[in-house]
């Protein structure tokens, strides 16, 4: 009987007034989202079925021309590469972020805040700036190449990009702060007594971590990985600047359609396809994790 009122609103205060107040509160946000979210989304879908005309123009229609173009091996290869790139980034960044988030959540308050400020500052940095910074860092005259030459690892100074590894490293860099911050709440909720209990029963710290802690954070880790896939599958600037044409992604195709070739309907179809694939992946993972977890 102690905490009865779960929603704050109790019927003590004129129940008939609530809908009016609520409507007043939500009218502006609803209008805002209808105009700026639902209508643009609808336009995007409509655009993907439109008829393309010369000079970057188009006319509303119900054509499948664009979607047929998606069925070419060329596009499918790029799409496959985009997802492979995203999955690889996900695995690497989660593997890296998990221990970092765990250690941060165990630090003293001041140290935690320092890390959080640092992470938030890099997280918010424009992809433009980070890509540019990596361009400088990996260039022949950047600090990294000089260090490697001085250490004798590299014989002659030459640029470390464009290639797949450069794209990979930069993408990991981009998502790492997001993932650390995403895992941080789950890590700080972890009860230290549980691995401690495992230790008292004879498990080594490493074993306790693997057998007790890891299963407990499986869910957040999976979600974090999924988040990385969502973030990077549409990546555009990083592969464009730090990669070769072999490393082009759907994101680059979409932006080319929109900005260079002026084929907006095709770009829209590619965007719709990309989002559909993402949603499909999301649904699949949900289905699998529900089937895999006992009664939850």
């Amino acid at each position: 009987m102690t905490d009865l009122a779960v929603p704050l609103k109790t019927d003590a205060e004129a129940p008939d007034r609530d809908p009016v107040v609520l409507a007043g509160l939500l009218s502006l946000p609803t209008l805002f989202l209808i105009v700026l979210c639902l209508i643009p989304l609808f336009l995007l879908v409509q655009l993907s079925f439109a008829h393309r005309e010369d000079g970057g123009l188009w006319r509303a229609g119900l054509e499948l021309t664009q979607y047929r173009q998606l069925m070419t091996p060329q596009f499918l290869k790029v799409a496959l590469f985009s997802f492979t790139l995203a999955l690889t980034t996900a695995v690497i960044s989660v593997a890296l972020a998990f221990p970092v988030a765990y250690f941060i959540s165990r630090m003293k308050r001041r140290a935690q805040i320092t890390w959080l400020v640092g992470l938030l500052s890099t997280l918010s940095l424009s992809e433009v700036l980070i890509v540019f910074a990596f361009q400088v860092l990996l260039s022949g005259s950047g600090g990294l190449v000089k260090t490697l030459v001085a250490l004798g690892v590299m014989e002659q100074a030459h640029s470390l990009y464009p290639n797949f590894a450069a794209v990979m490293v930069c993408l990991v860099y981009l998502v790492l702060p997001y993932i650390i911050l995403f895992l941080y709440p789950a890590m700080s909720q972890l009860d230290d007594d549980i691995p401690a209990a495992a230790t008292t029963m004879g498990a080594s710290p490493a074993r306790a971590f693997l057998t007790v802690v890891a299963p407990m954070v499986k869910g957040p880790l999976l979600s974090a990985g999924l988040l990385v896939v969502i973030f990077t599958v549409g990546s555009y600037l990083t592969p464009l600047v730090l990669g070769r044409p072999q490393q082009w992604t759907v994101g680059i195709l979409i932006s080319n359609g929109a900005m260079t070739t002026g084929n907006l309907p095709l770009a829209a179809a590619q965007a719709v396809a990309l989002v559909s694939l993402m949603v499909g992946l999301l649904g699949l993972v949900r289905l699998l994790s529900r089937a895999g977890s006992p009664a939850s």
């Binding site: 989304l41 336009l43 995007l44 992809e127 599958v233 549409g234 907006l264 990309l274």
Partner: peptide
């Protein structure tokens, strides 16, 4: 959560 390119195009 939508990719930047997609929202930009939209």
């Amino acid at each position: 959560l939508l990719p930047g390119v997609v929202t930009a195009l939209m």
